[in-house]
């Protein structure tokens, strides 16, 4: 495991590369796309678990923080969806260079799932795309954050601060630009999915949007499998008072690691 900064010097991204076990070296590498905001904090440990499990099966793995998140450069207010999409492309290039492999799979959780899907529009051609409770509708996601934030304010007896330039949602500022960009995310409108296989993993009961996305990807001619995983692994920000728990799901990690290993060449 090697932690380092990469990308341009003035906007460096923090990443951790997990070197595969030498005896099992595989023919593809895996890039992890994390959620953002409070969901990022809650899943950091699970992502480390997942990366370790995949590396032990012989996959080189890179996990990283988007610009203006985690340990990467940038202030919260500088976050943008287009920037985060570029960050995934930069991280993919870095992973290819580190691993010496051209074939990549992406695993995206929550908003990370939406971002991963959005770059699989031809910009990245993937072996596998695994979407873990992916945000399908950005508008619905922001509604959930707003609702949880209001609930938090109410319980703390506080009022909403000025929303002129940024809106604070569950501890993180969202600029108007970022809000607009997220609200326009709608994976059901994407026409092209450049992946050999897509897995839709849903921890809660599958909703109509999940099924609609499955049909949409199938109609684009891509092999798609929908699976339900560990129900307790639901980390969506629907309630703020569940935010003081870290995701630690061996079951979900095992399922995802086995999906990546399925049909993979040693």
């Amino acid at each position: 495991m090697n932690s380092f900064y990469f990308g341009s010097a003035d906007s460096a991204l923090f990443g951790t590369f997990h070197t595969p076990g030498a005896e099992h070296f595989r023919d593809s590498a895996v890039l992890l796309c994390s959620p953002t905001g409070q969901e990022y904090m809650r899943t950091h440990r699970a992502f480390r678990q997942l990366a370790t499990a995949l590396a032990s099966q012989g996959f080189p793995v890179l996990r990283f923080d988007y610009f203006a998140t985690g340990d990467s450069a940038g202030n919260d207010q500088e976050s943008s969806v287009s920037r985060w999409q570029d960050d995934i492309l930069t991280a993919a290039t870095e992973l290819k260079a580190l691993s010496g492999l051209e074939q990549l799979s992406l695993i995206g959780l929550r908003l990370g799932g939406a971002l991963a899907t959005s770059v699989a529009d031809g910009r990245l051609t993937l072996k596998k795309l695994i979407l873990w409770d992916a945000v399908i509708s950005g508008e619905q996601y922001i509604d959930e954050l707003r609702s949880a934030h209001q609930q938090m304010l109410k319980e703390l007896g506080r009022s909403q601060t000025d929303k002129h330039e940024t809106e604070e949602l569950l501890g993180f500022p969202f600029s108007n630009t970022l809000l607009h960009e997220i609200e326009t995310i709608n994976l059901l409108q994407q026409r092209h999915f450049s992946a050999e296989k897509v897995f839709l993993l849903v921890s809660a009961t599958a909703a109509a949007l999940d099924t609609a996305l499955r049909h949409k990807i199938e109609s684009a001619g891509v092999n798609v499998t929908q699976l339900s995983i560990d129900a307790a692994a639901d980390i969506s920000s629907k309630r703020y008072d569940q935010q003081d728990s870290l995701l630690f799901s061996s079951k979900a990690v095992k399922t995802i690691a086995s999906l990546i290993a399925q049909d993979a060449q040693p």
């Binding site: 307790a232 728990s245 799901s249």
Partner: peptide
């Protein structure tokens, strides 16, 4: 919720 978490061991409370 804590009871459910303990049963599934999928999440751990932050030790604040």
């Amino acid at each position: 919720a804590n009871k459910q978490r303990q049963q599934t061991a999928s999440t751990i409370r932050l030790k604040y």
